[in-house]
Computed example of a mutant assay.
Amino acid sequence: MTDAFPLPSASPAELGLDPAKLDLLCARIEADIAAGHHPGAQVALARHGKLGFFRSFGAARHGVPANDATLWLLYSNTKVITAAGLWALAEEGRLRLSDTIAQYLPGFEAGGKGGITFVQLLTHQAGFPSAEVPAAAWEDAALLREVVCGFQLEWEPGSSVRYHPASAHWVAAAVIRAVTGEDHRAYLRRRIIAPLGLEGELFVGVPPEVQPRTVDMHDVDGSVRMPEGTAAHRAAGIPGGGGYGTARAMAAFYQALLNGGAVAGRRILSPRMLGYAIRNYTGDRPDEYNGMPMHRGLGPHLRGETAGIRGLGDIAHPGTFGHGGVGSSYCWADPASGVSFAFLSNTRQAEEFHGARMNTLSDLAHAAIIS
């Protein structure tokens, strides 16, 4: 872990956050742990480039208390980090997000995929939501390229919005290697994570010496999930769901996205690139996987003005953007207030519980913003 966290600390009151609402947020987390919904959790809020709240709860692994250095499986929160890698390539002129993927990954055009653009890929309109990458390809770049180029379409690209749990971001990883010559894990660390000063607390691919800090991810029945509980899975850096981090690292990452691509004097992207990436590309079209409009940007989704939204909180400002991790977590940023939020836990709960839990926690965080 790095010696100094890049965000300076301030009290909630100094940042215009109501401590009483944060107490209620913590009480809900503690009650869920006491009820057996998950062994442990971590939460953080930041505002205007300062860390205002950071707390760990319960156990990281059996008999191991969670602490500030604990690394939590981010699941699909990883997607926004991977997307930021593509944003950076676009900003550097190495690709255009309106271009087709096949222009940068020859062979991807097979099976009718030649017209799929990065915009369609990142907004879950690519047409291959069920495609899978075998574990054998996690460390085999040639096999990964072969597998993603062989993905079969399930419907015409652009005709539907349907969440791609893993497949789209494996394509992004293959593109990153094709364009840069680097493994996506090394590239994301060099280009996105390390420049923010988060290299000790945010990982897409956890090295062996750091893995003792990671949580065990549990199923609803309390058993350790597999393959998430293996060293190979932690090291793989699955680009759509295998990152690890602390809540304060994710709050800091989202502070950079709020602040035009820079935080604490560290810049990774330009304001104009972020303005292009974090906008609603799918309108109020329902996401067929989630059963509601998700207002997809090129990585995160946005609150929008529909009656409800997954994870970001009903009372969120319409411009609030973020992403969740299946059954376990959510991270978001509110451009109206400058607040970023991260909640991470170590059980993959059913959506019926997770959606309601996250709506409550996110709404408490929004309600804490009083000035």
Rank of each mutant, 00 (worst) to 15 (best):
L74G: 04
P134Q: 11
H37A: 11
L15P: 03
A142G: 11
A66W: 03
A60P: 06
L274R: 03
K50W: 01
V133M: 11
G261V: 00
E182R: 12
F151E: 01
I315Q: 07
G114R: 08
R285K: 13
A235F: 04
Q42C: 10
K79I: 05
P12G: 07
G115I: 02
R191L: 06
I29L: 07
G205M: 01
R272G: 13
Y104R: 10
L25K: 00
T82G: 06
P157S: 05
V80D: 08
A172Y: 05
F128E: 04
M358L: 15
L361K: 00
L188P: 01
R185N: 02
L24S: 12
A368F: 09
V204A: 00
A264L: 09
R248V: 09
E91P: 09
A178P: 04
R303L: 12
L361Y: 12
A186L: 12
R185L: 03
R28E: 15
R185A: 01
Y187W: 15
P19S: 10
L198H: 04
H37I: 00
L45S: 03
H48Q: 15
G324R: 00
Q42M: 11
K79G: 00
V263M: 08
E199A: 12
L73D: 07
D216M: 04
R177H: 15
S130K: 15
E201C: 09
A35V: 00
A172T: 10
V224C: 11
I193K: 01
S345K: 02
F151C: 05
T78K: 06
S160M: 08
Q152D: 12
V263A: 03
D183H: 13
E109M: 10
A88E: 08
Q103V: 05
P208H: 11
R234K: 13
I176R: 03
F321A: 05
N67P: 06
I81M: 10
M1S: 15
S328A: 15
W72M: 01
A342W: 00
A137E: 06
G197Y: 01
A60V: 09
D284P: 01
F54W: 12
L74F: 04
L74Y: 01
G158C: 01
H124C: 10
L202V: 02
H37G: 04
G291I: 08
R177I: 02
L258I: 12
R61V: 06
L74Q: 02
H184G: 06
E201R: 09
D140I: 12
S98F: 05
I309C: 14
